[in-house]
Amino acid sequence: MNAIQDLLTLMFFPGGLFVLALGMSYEWIDRKLMARVQNRVGPRWFQPYADIAKLLVKEEVIPADSNRLLFIALPILALAGALTAALYVPLAGFDPLYSFKGDLIVTLYLLSLLTVCTGLAGANTTDRFSLVGATRTLTQLFSYEAPFLLAMLGPAVAARSWQINEIIADADGQWLLIVQPVGFVVALIGLLGKLEIAPFNAPEAETEIVAGALTEYSGRGLALFRLGRHVELVVGLTMVAAFYMGGVNGLPLFILKTLLLLLILVGIQSLVARLRIDQTVGLWWRWGVLLVLAQWLALVIWEGVQA
């Protein structure tokens, strides 16, 4: 009986399908807001669903000289990673489904899985756009990942715990972004890099390398990658909101805070041009890392003083 209930939870509420639906709604809000900023009408609410449905029924073309197994498995792995990560974060204000000591680290790595899979998927084909895209994806991964990780660990250090639950409980409604503003900014911008949205969309710059690493993907594979991206958007927003904006207990608070973050993301996204990949790397290592490290230092000293 219990097992069935667990299964149901995993598949429907608040796991699985619920996360997917949430992801697509956020994707829609993102696109709609973007359109409104640009004075366009924008898509209707069901557009992300329609996109995915269309992709799922379309033929999937597997390029002749790529590894079939990898080609098929990578999108599944990517989506699975993102979905698994969703289990450990307080989505929609519910307690995380699973929680154990150190789940923060696991979640962060699971979130990176999507990017890694995208990069591998690009490297798996012989298409030249994909290869350039894969190089860029992985380069970008190495540039934002460390600062993002450090930024996410800031609250953890403050809470002296690696468990998402405890960190949130420790923060207990305090807005950490006031005491750790750098961490907040870096985390938010790291999210932009993670999701490959402007100005960090060089890996899929359509005017240069078509669709980047995913150029050869069509049909099901592309749909899964995109779903993974949508889920990651929600998970990322949730984590930043939970860590830096005083937790997300309850649905209204969750929606309010994540939407606020999304609005900021849309603002950044629509007001900048795309950075070149070398500029992205430069930005992160020259500013992102240094700033986060400086904040870390301050944190550690503060903790030392207190102890």
């Binding site: 807001l33 409104r36 640009q38 004075n39 009408v41």
Partner: peptide
Amino acid sequence: TLLQYAIRSLFRRTATQRY
């Protein structure tokens, strides 16, 4: 500035004509 303009655009009528 572009930022002010973008925020204003959020509340403006869209330029698209629903033909």
